Amino acid sequence: MKGVPMLQMTVAMAIFGSIGFFTGKTGIPAAELVFVRCICATLFLGLCWLVAGQHKVEVWRKREVIQTIVCGVFLVLNWVFLFKAFEEMSITVAITLYNLAPIFVLIIGSVVLKERMTVPSLLAIVTCFLGSILIIGIQNVTSFTDFVGSGFVWAILSAVCYAMTMLIGKGITGLSAYAMTFVQTAIGIVMLWPFMNFTEFIGLTDSNWLYIIGTGLIHTGFVYYLFFNSLRKLSTVVISALVFVDPVVAILLDVLILDFQPSGLQTGGILLIFGGIVYTIVKQEKEVVSSD
């Protein structure tokens, strides 16, 4: 029965989509928020892992453990850069640029892994590049400082790190999803601990703490439980479609609650980017089906 997994994935993506709204209400910087998120995910998913008894049957291969650790580094950097982007620009713009990850998978695969770049893939990349120029409002950027301060760099870095997470994680088949995430978020705690400014947590309001705990337990622990519980029961085509619930919810919240009003050029850029991404995903699915 596919109905329950589809509902779980849809709910997970919808909650993911609200993370930008929550982030802005926490009152703490990106690195500190990701640190809390890693702690919550490690405890929550570690408990699920133990209760399900999956830890007893894990197959630990040295190569996969190393891959998982490297994946964890990129996953944590991806979160930090995304939250930094939320601090500097609207959620709509940040989340749109973040969803360029599949395009970066194509580019990195072509450059590093020497995978063949087709004309349609190149067309999708050019389309998304043009969309990025429009969405950032390049005409308003008069210096390199303005460019960096716009948040564009953070959003692009988050997309690149997400792409690296996808590429490196593709070869991990022995470890369960719970084991992978437990290792990755535990790595995040170790990575971020030396850089933590714990004074950022002093003087926070009850509302701040509510959003912080919500981001940790709901957006990380609970959401990843739903995500992993449904992931292996759905086809790649269905997952690719449902993933777009995330940016749709993010953009709706930004426009309806935070009153973000994209300009005509930004709207055009958003449409170009998502058009290129949808085309890329559909094209990849057709290639997979035809090769089977």
Rank of each mutant, 00 (worst) to 15 (best):
G203F: 06
I189K: 00
V93Q: 06
V34D: 04
E64A: 10
W60Q: 10
Y225F: 15
T205R: 05
G27I: 01
Q284D: 15
A101Y: 08
E32W: 07
G131Y: 09
L106E: 06
V282C: 08
L45V: 11
K114M: 08
L75M: 13
K170L: 10
A177G: 13
L50K: 15
L7S: 06
Y162A: 02
I19F: 15
Y162I: 01
S291E: 11
A163D: 03
F260R: 04
L123T: 15
V255E: 06
E200G: 03
S90N: 08
V59T: 14
A94N: 07
I95T: 14
A31K: 10
G20L: 04
V111P: 00
V237K: 15
V153F: 00
G171T: 07
Q261Y: 09
K283T: 12
S290A: 12
I28M: 07
T267E: 06
L253E: 06
I213F: 15
I39F: 03
V148A: 09
W49I: 09
D206K: 13
G17S: 09
K2M: 13
V73P: 01
M191W: 02
M191G: 06
E32A: 11
S291C: 08
W209G: 07
I28S: 05
A159K: 02
I69N: 04
V245R: 03
A14R: 06
T42G: 00
K170D: 12
G137K: 04
Y279C: 08
E87A: 11
G72I: 03
T165H: 09
R63G: 05
I95Y: 04
E200C: 13
T267D: 04
A14C: 09
G169Y: 06
V65F: 12
S291K: 13
V36H: 01
I273N: 04
A30F: 02
A177Q: 12
G137A: 04
L100T: 09
K84Y: 06
L47H: 05
S176D: 08
A12V: 13
W193Q: 12
L7Y: 02
V243I: 11
Y225V: 10
F147V: 04
S158D: 03
G24V: 07
V148G: 03
T267N: 10
I172F: 05
V249M: 07
V76I: 14
G171R: 06
A31G: 10
K56V: 10
R116A: 15
K84D: 08
G221I: 00
V11E: 01
D259M: 11
N208Y: 00
G109W: 07
V93L: 10
I218D: 03
M166H: 08
W49D: 05
F83P: 01
Y225D: 00
Y178G: 12
I66W: 13
V34E: 01
F228N: 10
A163G: 08
N140A: 09
T199S: 15
D292A: 11
W154Y: 14
L272M: 13
M196I: 10
I135W: 05
Q8F: 13
S291N: 14
T10M: 12
F228L: 09
L43N: 01
M180Q: 15
V245K: 02
M6K: 14
